[in-house]
Design a protein around this nucleic acid. Structure first.
Lengths: 414, 414
DNA sequence: ACTATTTTTTTCGAGCCTCGAAATAAAAGG
DNA sequence: CCTTTTATTTCGAGGCTCGAAAAAAATAGT
């Protein structure tokens, strides 16, 4: 409530951020374009851009790239200077680590995926592997671009609100792993860690702002069920943990056994292991299996499509659970567009009728709950993109908006 | 994402708001106190306060009120000028309209409650009654204070996100009633309409900031079940409606009949009519009765306390439903302190064990869901207070923070 | 009574920032 | 080579906050 006080310098910082955001959205903009996009006066834009160029944050490009030849002084295009900084991107999911290096302009400098048995690995093991991968990439690409200035990490699990500690993850035994501080110490840069679904949401918002520019939910259906929420233009998170644990809302009291240890969670009906369990006619208290081969799962879906039976019913049960959860979610936050991401999106056709059915009961006030649902089967590219955006926006906001003082001194271009 | 641009004037506006907020929190402050409370420099505070005093927003009081006699130039106390404006406060609940007039310092100028059969009334009827009550109060207190400048209205029902239209209310048949625009037209002032639970939350936050200064939920257990949420220092609302419909989360698929027309809502197990239904051994599809006498309900609770039986079981069922809802809520937003408000708070002892029980299943990441729960049996004073705060803060922010231009011209002090 | 001390508040100049208007730069057209 | 057009920079005005110094207004002490 108190709020921070405002000083004249804050005005400049705020407007610098505005300029950088506009350029990042469009990729490249002239000063005139920035004037129109931000509403700032031409003189102010001129001053701000001059500062950013002299600090090396932006690059001027005089060659009009393909625009129609017009009379008058040609516009000078401004774009992020790729070599001013790099950011590290890490995605930790079941038995798989992906590390990438992205330059300040968003270009991928390096990209590597390693298979690692996460279930049996300790936090230290994973930390060492991630550190080694990132260090290798930094070395192999040294000299041709700026120094590492930020790391964003996506994990399949519950993180604390500060984005430092992985509190619990279905993909491994150990708990309370401080990946954030560890990475920060190892590489001397700020680290943002978040649930992979939060990164998903960030990426979707970025790639399809016309659809996901407002409120929406990204639901990841893979090994477990997660959700990333954007509300009022802000990523939603709990006060202590990353929260938004859609998959662990209670569907059935004393119901099926969930991997989180409780019973009756939505995930215990709609997670891949749950569908597997039901499709094989196992009791719903059977312990969740740890990993399901994609091809095997695809065959299961195929059988469910071709003939009625226990397999098809398993998908229906999953659909009902998801629909139930969406229904409750929508009771709390109003219906929003939904993005279904990951392997589960490939079998959406098998679940959609039950999902829609669960949502069909209209409230007295008539707001129909039927939302727009879109499917995105490939989650990994989106997660990485979300991490990259998170890091780059953090750089825009924290580092380069601060002005002359620190940044230009810290940055050493090659 | 785009965000508004910032100009030097915005700095002054922001800091004026800061000063006003500090004074409203403490009631009366000297310039030195403001300096410490806001972090602004003494010179800036001096300039801002001079403006506010010359506009008549603040009043200087030279008589040191009881403070220990100290050396040095005595502090001049600044407080809101009660006569600079008044705000109207309206609470519409089942068969009851309360209207009050509050001055800019928060003092109650007039207060009146009328019994009106809301179920059979039309929106126009209610609007006419509210208008008449408010107009009467304005006339009877004319001359001794400022003109009406804002109205806040709390309703037991679902409103749109803009705070203009009552979309649906359990207390009446008609839907989509535009109380907001109607009041605004009738009195020529901005109107903020919201769910009564949102106002509740506002009041609690105000009266006990040490407990409710952060995230918390206020749950109103009366004729229906509502919730007001504060998250990250912001009142939570949906994108289209007021949302946060805790009472209409789905507890049991195809379960008990709810007053909203659907089945299995939490309210259909924990609303007063649901408890009544269960305590009398009626089927849970029996139509909800429209109103329950407080004394009768109290006798019911007394019997449940003294002897086991169907009455006690009815309260247990209610507790389970509420606990179930809290469990799901906490899956989405992390556990937060809970304020139980209204008649239902009087029977909390009968429900608490089942509520706690439903919350006892810990997640894998160990965050225990047991929240701090406090009871506030009297909802009406809190709702009115919340309305008053809403209006006064709106005045602070919108009108007086704008500076010289408009406000001083519009205000006519008696 | 009068001066010294203490505390609060105001005044003043420096340093930011944004903006509009005017000036300058850099192209195509004729 | 001059005119027109469009983009960008320069310049002065007007705000705002801040620190330092000055002024105000009381008590304490002699």
């Amino acid at each position: 409530m108190a709020g921070a006080i405002t000083r004249p310098d804050d005005v400049r910082r705020q407007n610098r951020k505005l300029v950088l955001a506009a350029i990042r959205r469009k990729g490249a903009l002239s000063r005139t374009d920035i004037t129109m996009a931000t509403g700032l006066s031409a003189s102010t834009v001129s001053a701000i851009v001059a500062g950013l160029v002299s600090e090396g944050v932006l690059l001027e490009s005089r060659d009009g790239d393909g625009g129609p030849i017009r009379r008058g002084r040609p516009q000078v295009t401004l774009m992020p200077n790729p070599d001013i900084a790099r950011v590290g991107v890490v995605n930790l999911s079941l038995n798989r680590i992906t590390v990438a290096l992205v330059d300040y302009a968003g270009g991928i400098v390096a990209d590597e995926t390693a298979d690692v048995p996460t279930r049996s690995a300790s936090g230290g093991d994973l930390m060492a592997e991630i550190g080694a991968m990132l260090r290798r990439q930094l070395q192999s690409t040294a000299g041709n671009s700026g120094r590492l200035m930020h790391i964003a990490m996506a994990v399949q699990g519950v993180t604390d609100a500060a984005g430092e500690t992985l509190l619990w993850a279905p993909i491994m035994e150990e708990r309370n792993i401080g990946f954030g501080p560890a990475l920060a110490r190892a590489f001397g840069v700020p680290v943002a860690m978040a649930n992979d679904c939060a990164m998903l949401a960030e990426a979707l918002r970025w790639t399809a702002p016309e659809r996901y520019g407002g409120d929406f939910a990204a639901i990841l259906l893979s090994y477990g069920i997660g959700m990333g929420l954007y509300l009022k233009g802000q990523p939603f998170s709990g006060s202590r943990s990353s929260a938004a644990e859609f998959g662990h809302m209670a569907h059935m009291p004393h119901g099926a056994l969930c991997r989180c240890g409780r019973r009756g969670c939505i995930e215990a009906y709609a997670g891949d292991y749950a569908i597997w369990r039901n499709a094989l006619g196992m009791p719903d208290t059977a312990p969740p299996i740890s990993s399901i081969d994609a091809a095997v799962f695809a065959r299961l879906a195929e059988r469910a499509r071709t003939e009625p039976g226990v397999e098809r019913e398993a998908f229906h049960i999953a659909g009902r659970a998801i629909g139930f959860g969406l229904n409750n979610l929508f009771s709390l936050i109003d219906p929003v567009p939904i993005a279904l991401v990951g392997p589960g999106a490939k079998v959406f056709d098998l679940m959609e009728p039950e999902i829609r059915n669960a949502l069909s009961g209209a409230f007295g006030w008539g707001s129909n709950h039927q939302p727009e649902i879109r499917c995105y089967p490939q989650e990994h590219p989106l997660i990485l993109q979300g991490c990259a955006m998170t890091s780059l926006l953090a750089l825009d906001a924290e580092m380069f908006s601060a002005g002359e003082g620190r940044s230009s001194a810290q940055i050493s271009a090659a």
